[in-house]
Design a protein around this nucleic acid. Structure first.
Lengths: 366, 366
DNA sequence: AGTCTTTGCACAATCGATGTTGCACATGAA
DNA sequence: TTCATGTGCAACATCGATTGTGCAAAGACT
């Protein structure tokens, strides 16, 4: 390509091809059949464009077409396996459609979230996904005003379709798993109960999980006391503080812990580092969300694996065929059974002592 | 705002303010002092714009100004703590500058990477960061042709500044840590050695880490044999296969394992699940990269913590004051000591049996 | 040959914002 | 009163693509 200062435009190509800008545009955009441009001219123009390293100026195209080819997605944070897996799927599906994904994190700040929506509107994104919305009502309003298609993921919102995990049944499932290792007893002391920690009680997802948690405990005759539910927000630091306070109150770790999210789990872990050895032996842990590393901690953790890929897939489906109202589509999560068994067996071995060390590293399930 | 079909433009605002589009533009863009627009007119225009829910059409502005306010970043994958932390920092710095971050993942596919660069160019991004580039030479060429500022991160490239981790010394440090638990012995059997696994040997970062690894081993009189270095690529699956094959060859796990990245570590873990109990007792693990959950696995892992925030900070610095050539700025990583001690002590306790269980959950360092 | 149709393309308006230019009016000095 | 100097703003060209319209030339048909 001619190493000029500026990028080539359709005008430059037109001059070189002895043709007009509109013809060049049609030839390169694929509209040439409709516009009856001859095959030979198209070939010529394509060759020259190639030589010149031409590429469409998307700002100009977008301005003219009142679209941008961008699709936005808002997530609370990037550095979290659940949301980063969503980003990965979101991006893959966007590329399949020839769209460019723009992913922004709100840090769970409602104002930041609104600013991001405004910005995306300014850039004329074709539609947006909002995952884990902090202020869904405001978002819906902004989008409606700008006539912008949108779908809520993970946390539902009004005035637009939502795709969410089946939090109620997922939580019930996890609670039952925890109960399989904690004998339910209505007379149990505070320390012998299961505690729910993390999340915001007014958030739909957290609320539904708490309902599931409560339902199962009630079912076995041990309805949770108010203090068994500690919805202290999502940031790791909060969970760390709360778990520390809880341990102080109880004189030790409780019999079971239902952690509401990976970020809260990070905080719980942050406290565990400070605990004396053996502290975890009589505690059973569950986490709503999956992380491949968290699944292999030095103490067993039951995890609920949300299918972020399917969440995103369904979200695209809803964007393509927008239903009228604020439909909510639920996607079932599944448990991740392997780690616990592994870890429990491991511990048993360690406790048994190493009289007959197993051969290192040869394959074979425990 | 008047609930029309379309969004308000400066023309609409001009009409309502009994003024002209250029005046509205100047009033809203902040250039009004330079253009001698009266304060009263500015106030009027601002009020009306607010009422109408006006927001600048960034495509039009970008077209006119030949800039977009977008900044791009390419990373290999989203769902990896190292890169997602980078995204987080990248985004924060971008917002500080009033720019909109566009983050894309290449899946370590050179062709995809080039397509992404082309796309970003089409959208007239102001500059781009490339983290963990797969084909840095091609990227530099594309950017130069489009006259696009760029910086390489994590993996250096030609023709532009680079910010990378001090892989050589980081790897040397990690190797020395591993050696503190594996007696170096020139006569050691294949199984009693330390193996390096993961990464691409021709990648700069991996190459430097291998150099550091080799240097330290050579220093203690045990230069690594060729088969001790298994640069099998980044995908988890590859590492899983290789570690399985290695275990089969050796009749068990080796004495030490230097894992080149988190993704490879995921693969290693994937194999460990299939191993019999007690397999890890005589193996010391190290991983170049940090993940908060991976730091607390059920067996000890030494981790090198790269300072992704500083990497990005330095990258922005280099973008702002672009040096002439292909300068390389190195940022020191640091070890993450806590987990190993914790885990080792934990194990000791478990092995000792539970004659006197520690009080659960009360604070106090091990 | 004359009319009609089809082919192949160029022209010009348009998207919304920016920034240069110039004009009308006001104020102050001579 | 006249000229110089400011002030406040509108007109217009521009960015690079898309798209509705029009118009020659070539071929088809009577």
């Amino acid at each position: 390509m001619t190493t000029q200062g500026r990028k080539a435009t359709i005008f430059d190509i037109a001059k070189l091809a002895d043709s007009s800008p509109s013809t060049v545009s049609a030839a390169l955009s694929g509209a040439w059949k409709k516009r009856r441009i001859s095959q030979s001219k198209v070939d010529l123009i394509r060759r020259i464009a190639e030589e010149q390293g031409y590429s469409t100026n998307m700002q100009a195209r977008g301005l003219r077409q009142a679209r941008s080819g961008l699709v936005g997605m808002i997530i609370p944070v990037h550095d979290n396996r659940y949301f980063s897996s969503m980003s990965q799927s979101f991006e893959a599906f966007a590329r399949d459609r020839g769209l460019v994904p723009v992913i922004a994190s709100s840090m769970r700040d409602g104002e930041e979230e609104r600013r991001i929506v405004q910005t995306l509107i300014s850039y004329a994104v074709d539609y947006i996904f909002i995952a884990g919305a902090t202020d869904p009502v405001a978002i819906s309003e902004l989008c409606r005003a700008a006539n912008l298609r949108h779908v809520f993921v993970d946390l539902p919102g009004p005035g637009a379709p939502s795709v969410i995990s089946d939090n109620y049944h997922g939580a019930a499932m996890l609670t039952r798993t925890l109960l399989s290792r904690v004998r339910p007893d209505p007379e149990a002391s505070a320390r012998d109960r299961i505690y729910f920690i993390g999340g915001v009680a007014t958030d739909y997802a957290t609320a539904r999980r708490i309902e599931g948690f409560r339902h199962v405990l009630t079912e076995v005759g041990c309805p949770p006391l108010p203090e068994q539910i500690i919805a202290c927000g999502y940031p790791p630091r909060r969970a760390m503080k709360e778990i520390a306070a809880l341990c102080d109150r109880l004189g030790g770790l409780p019999a079971g812990l239902f952690v509401n999210s990976l970020t809260s789990f990070e905080g719980v872990l942050g406290h565990f580092v400070h605990l004396p050895l053996g502290s975890f032996d009589d505690t059973v842990l569950g986490c709503y969300d999956y992380d491949p590393f968290a699944a292999y901690l030095h103490f067993p953790v039951h995890m609920v694996r949300q299918d972020s890929h399917r969440l995103i897939e369904e979200a695209y489906r809803l964007i393509d065929a927008p239903p009228a109202g604020a439909l909510i589509k639920e996607v079932a999560p599944r448990p991740d059974p392997a780690p616990y068994d592994l870890c429990r067996s491991l511990r048993r071995t360690w406790l048994r002592g190493r009289s007959q060390p197993a051969p290192r590293g040869l394959s074979g399930r425990p």
